[in-house]
């Protein structure tokens, strides 16, 4: 549910590029061009970056109660 730390296939750490990628795509840039710009060349890493959806920010709102295990 959180964004992946590494590319699922090759293991390349996707940060800090992921942060800039998401910022720029949300600002309306073409995702493919942003990936080229950031130097993400392999299609496994490009797939992981493109397809990752962060739902932790939505889910976390339902967990404001403090759990004690």
């Amino acid at each position: 549910m959180m964004l992946p730390v590494r590319c699922y296939t090759c293991g390349r750490p996707l940060w800090p590029e992921m942060e800039e990628f998401r910022k720029r795509v949300e600002a309306g840039e073409d995702p493919g061009k942003v990936l080229d710009d950031l130097g993400i060349r392999r299609y496994c890493c490009r797939r992981t970056m493109l397809a990752a959806v962060d739902i932790s920010k939505e889910i976390i709102k339902f967990s404001t109660r403090v759990h004690r295990w």
Binding site: M2, V5, P13, W15, E19, K57, I60, S63, T64, V66
Partner: peptide
């Protein structure tokens, strides 16, 4: 950590 910008865990409210 070789990269400082990797998100580990999200927290909200009084969570720790």
């Amino acid at each position: 950590p070789a990269v400082d910008a990797i998100p580990v865990v999200p927290l909200i409210g009084e969570q720790r």
